[in-house]
Amino acid sequence: MLVVLKTKNILHKRVTILSILLLLLFANSRLYSQIIYTDIPDATPNATYSLDLNNDTVVDFIIYFGGSGSTIGVMCNPQNNNAYSGNFINGTYLPWALSTSNPICASLATWYDFNNPGTLALGTNIGHWVGASDKYLALKLIVGTNTYYGWARIDILSNSASFTIKDYAYESTPNACIQSGQNSLEISEYSKNKLYSIFPNPFKFSTTIQTKSNLKNACLNIYNSNGQIVRQENNLSGHTIFLSRDALSSGLYFIKLTEENKVIAIEKILITD
């Protein structure tokens, strides 16, 4: 009986340790695997919308319409090595018009780059996007040697004479999947009630973080897009945190603000040159 009890205790301890490790792994993945969501005022441009999917001031895709009568249409032109997903029918490249919760990643069979601009809609009967409302364009973003996946939500009139882009997002972990319509819940659930503002953001030299709560001995960690800590500021108090760029290179970062070992805010910042 004693041997059995000891065995059960050892097994219980191992299960407990494994559970803790799994929880830590899940928590880390929620912090480092972030969906960067950008909500914009619904934009209905006269001709062209320059889409900067990762908000780094570089245009990644150009959505535009032109023509007249039955030949008026809406096109997607990837820039650099970026791409959209779709199919090829009767000599025309047609981007998919996805509904919500469709996985967007390498498993999508066909991707087309700048060599093959896509026709979202043409006239009243060509393309998957004719008369589309709240549909999602699957996008692949290439930055250096990394590949990211994202989406843009777009409406197009039934005669293809106008389009409206509403919002967009991408998964900041290279090669990770994102679902169409999925946004950045991990960031917003912490930050929506804890920070007044981060201004300016993006910034070149410094920014100021305003908090709603009065901090006492708080800690601010700065992570790069790979989830590595690149700076730590300790013993922070008050409502205002002045953050200097110092030696940080340009790019996307995440800040995590903790107080008494509790996470009270997670936000993204962008440093530019």
Rank of each mutant, 00 (worst) to 15 (best):
L2Q: 09
L5N: 07
T7A: 14
N9K: 12
I10K: 11
I10V: 12
H12C: 13
R14H: 12
V15Y: 11
T16F: 15
I17P: 00
L18D: 10
L24M: 10
L25I: 06
F26A: 15
A27S: 11
A27N: 07
N28A: 05
L31A: 06
Y32R: 12
Q34G: 03
I36H: 06
Y37P: 01
I40S: 04
A43S: 15
T44V: 09
T44M: 13
T44F: 12
N46F: 14
A47E: 13
T48K: 12
T48I: 15
L53Q: 02
V58R: 08
V58C: 02
D60P: 05
D60N: 10
I62S: 08
S70R: 10
S70V: 14
V74H: 03
M75H: 04
Q79I: 02
N80Q: 13
N81C: 04
A83K: 12
Y84V: 06
G86Q: 00
F88R: 09
I89T: 14
I89V: 15
T92W: 03
A97Y: 08
A97K: 07
T100Y: 10
T100K: 11
N102M: 14
T110I: 08
D113W: 04
D113K: 07
F114A: 15
N115C: 01
T119P: 00
A121W: 00
T124C: 11
H128S: 08
V130L: 07
V130K: 06
V130I: 15
G131K: 02
D134P: 00
K135S: 11
Y136T: 03
L141W: 01
T145A: 10
Y148P: 05
G150D: 08
A152F: 02
L157N: 15
N159K: 07
S162P: 05
S162K: 12
D167L: 01
D167S: 13
Y170N: 06
T173D: 00
A176D: 11
A176L: 09
S180P: 07
N183R: 13
L185K: 08
S188I: 15
E189H: 09
N193A: 09
I198N: 02
T208D: 04
I209H: 06
N224F: 01
N224G: 00
N226S: 10
Q228D: 10
V230R: 03
R231T: 05
R231G: 02
R231P: 00
L236G: 04
S237V: 09
H239W: 14
I241A: 05
S244N: 15
D246R: 10
S249Y: 04
S250M: 05
L252K: 11
L252H: 09
Y253R: 01
L257S: 02
L257F: 09
E259V: 01
E259C: 06
I264M: 09
A265G: 04
E267A: 13
E267Y: 08
K268L: 04
I271T: 03
